[in-house]
Design a protein around this nucleic acid. Structure first.
Ligand SMILES: [Mn+2]
Ligand SMILES: [Mn+2]
Ligand SMILES: [Zn+2]
Ligand SMILES: [Zn+2]
Lengths: 151, 151
DNA sequence: CAGACTATTGAAGATGATTATCAATAAGCA
DNA sequence: TGCTTATTGATAATCATCTTCAATAGTCTG
């Protein structure tokens, strides 16, 4: 959960015998410039990259996003059924959690440093190397509570 | 997050115009008798049901498990890549969270009532009807930190 | 308790997000 | 500037999950 620049990303990749490519740098930039509260799926990323003139293949997008999640640079979120969303994994005080409507997927972000503390402490106690810590509240939003549609 | 019996399950299903079937009751029983720390995938459930002489179809298992998650009876967990796991959604003091190794999926459960409080309070403040609240700590376990295998 | 209504089931096939393959390309390094 | 090999893009493959639909069986009513 650190702040990454192209340089620090390169350094960390090279450390592991990997490489910094224009594609990886471009994808990092997309996330770094993503307004708070936005979350991108692989498909979203693909579209957005195309629109800005960076036609990166879906294969590469899937690989990159997975790699960055494993490195702790991105967070992998289950905000909707059927596909994952990603956002930058930022440290305190940007770190936050999600309240998700299981019917319409409307999502509200909220912060809690006590949760982050519990997460760090628990990982440390067990000797785990922390990558991400996210509270997911699955619930039904006020609007969907009124809807008569089943389930 | 209530404790369910076959009767209370029937009552809640009927309230919504739905039905209690032997399949649904059997699946609820499986989860009610599952030892702490166990989590079942749809495929796991299918196998286990077959073994105990209840050959319920995979279709029905997927439907039931999804239905019960939407009702708040089961929790849907992302403990490993590629498939979901389910467990009973129990109230305090059985309610717990998961510390997950992203490389080998080894999972450790832990409790925290402060997190549960944050979850309830947040849902309530936004007018959401709470179904489940789970802290997922994604990390790398001690054993996998030592492994040389990439990512 | 029987009959009507319709939710549910099981079998089979479809879907679609994500991965695997592999030849061509291009980082990193000396 | 070359050498090694990680990475990319195109394509095909995977496989967890959902859909369809005819047959079955809960629930409700009289
Ligand atoms: Mn977010
Ligand atoms: Mn558990
Ligand atoms: Zn909603
Ligand atoms: Zn591990």
């Amino acid at each position: 959960m650190a702040i990454y620049t192209a340089d620090s990303l390169k350094a960390e990749l090279n450390d592991r015998g990997w490489r910094l490519t224009p594609q990886r740098e471009t994808i990092l930039h997309i996330f770094q410039n993503l307004p708070e509260g936005n979350h991108l799926s692989a498909e979203d990323l693909h579209t957005r990259l195309h629109e800005q003139g960076d036609p990166i293949s879906l294969s590469t997008i899937y690989r990159t996003v997975k790699l960055m999640a494993r490195m702790g640079i991105l967070r992998e979120l289950e905000l909707a059924e059927g596909h994952k969303h990603y956002e930058l994994n930022q440290p305190y005080p940007y770190h936050h959690h999600h309240l998700i409507c299981v019917k319409c997927s409307k999502t509200i972000e909220f912060k809690s440093d006590s949760i982050l503390k519990v997460g760090s402490k628990t990982a440390q106690k067990e000797g785990y190397h922390l990558l991400d810590c996210q509270l997911s509240i699955h619930a039904i939003c006020p609007q969907c509570q009124r809807s008569l549609f089943p389930v």
